[in-house]
C-alpha cells in the first residue's frame, strides 16, 4: 500500500544568524500517525518542529534552506501566507499557555477571527473540541470561569482543545507533558492515542518511554542532524546506528 505523507522535508538547513542549527533534514511524516522526535537538549528537534508551522518566522535573523512540503506545497514559497499554514498545522507548547480569558473564549478566540460567526456553530465547536480533548466533563459547568483557574494538566488539555477547534490537519506538540505530573501526563498520552484517528501528530519529547508508548515513527536527532528515522519499534529494539542505541539505553544525552 502506498503511504500517504502529509508533510515532507527535503534537505532542510536552518540557521540562527551564522549558527547552523539543522543540517540536511529529509523526513516524511505519514498522515494520521504519531511521529516522535527525540534527542538530547539542543539537538534541533524543537527547531524542526517550529519550522513545520513557520513559528521560527518570529525570530529575527533566521534562515531556511531546502523545502518543507505540506500536502505537496512548499510552505516557505513566497506566495504562502504563514497564517493560513498555522490554521492547518496547529501547535501545543511545552508550558500550558491559555489566554487570560474564560475557558469558553479560549476556544472561540481563533475560530471567531477565522470567520465563524454563527452562535450555534460556535457553541457546538466548543463542546466538540472540549470533548475531543477529554476536558468537557470537568469544565462544562464552569465555561465562563477564567482558564487560569484550571490545573496545569487541565490547562494543557484546554490548549489542545483550543488547537482542535481550528480543525487542523496536523498537530505539533513540543514536549507537551514535560511540565505536568504523571497522572496528567497519562491523560494526555491517552488523548494523543485517540486523536491520531483524525489528526497527524508530531511530538517532541524527552521522555523515551513516552516516545515508545505513543508513536508509530521515531526520529533520533543529534547535533542538528537526523541520525536515524524509522518505525518506533525498530528504533527501540534494534537500531541501525550505534549512537541511537547509546542514547536510548541512556549511555549519553
Amino acid at each position: 500500500m502506498e503511504k500517504d505523507f502529509i508533510i515532507r522535508t527535503k534537505n532542510v538547513d536552518f540557521y540562527y544568524g551564522a549558527f547552523r542549527a539543522l543540517s540536511d533534514i529529509t523526513m516524511d511524516f505519514e498522515k494520521n500517525k504519531v511521529t516522535a522526535l527525540i534527542g538530547p537538549s539542543g539537538c534541533g528537534k524543537s527547531t524542526l518542529l517550529r519550522l513545520l508551522n513557520r513559528m521560527n518566522d518570529l525570530i529575527d535573523g533566521t534562515r531556511v534552506e531546502g523545502e518543507i512540503l505540506f500536502e505537496g506545497r512548499n510552505i516557505y514559497a513566497p506566495d504562502v501566507d504563514p497564517v493560513e499554514i498555522r490554521q492547518r498545522i496547529g501547535m501545543v507548547f511545552q508550558k500550558p499557555n491559555p489566554f487570560p480569558k474564560s475557558i469558553y473564549n479560549n476556544i472561540t478566540y481563533a475560530p471567531k477571527l477565522a470567520g465563524i460567526r454563527e452562535s450555534g456553530e460556535i457553541e457546538a465547536l466548543v463542546e466538540e473540541s472540549l470533548k475531543q480533548a477529554v476536558l468537557w466533563d470537568e469544565v462544562k459547568d464552569i465555561l465562563t470561569k477564567s482558564a487560569m483557574t484550571l490545573s496545569g494538566g487541565q490547562q494543557q488539555r484546554l490548549c489542545i482543545a483550543r488547537a482542535l477547534a481550528m480543525k487542523p490537519d496536523v498537530i505539533l506538540m513540543d514536549e507537551p507533558t514535560s511540565a505536568l505530573d504523571p497522572i496528567s501526563t497519562a491523560k494526555i498520552e491517552e488523548l494523543i492515542d485517540t486523536l491520531k484517528k483524525h489528526y497527524t501528530i508530531i511530538i517532541v519529547t524527552h521522555n523515551m518511554q513516552q516516545a515508545a508508548r505513543i508513536s508509530e515513527y521515531t526520529g533520533f536527532f543529534y547535533l542538528g542532524k537526523v541520525i536515524e528515522f524509522n518505525v518506533t519499534e525498530k528504533i527501540f529494539t534494534n537500531p541501525d546506528v550505534k549512537q541511537t542505541e547509546d542514547y536510548i539505553t541512556g549511555r549519553f544525552g
Partner: peptide, 19 residues
C-alpha cells in the same frame, strides 16, 4: 507565550496585537 499561542492558532499578527 501569549503571542506564540495566538499566532500558532493561525491568528494574524494584527489581531494578535489588538486582541
Amino acid at each position: 507565550t501569549f503571542r506564540e499561542a495566538s499566532l500558532a492558532l493561525g491568528v494574524s499578527k494584527w489581531n494578535t496585537i489588538f486582541r
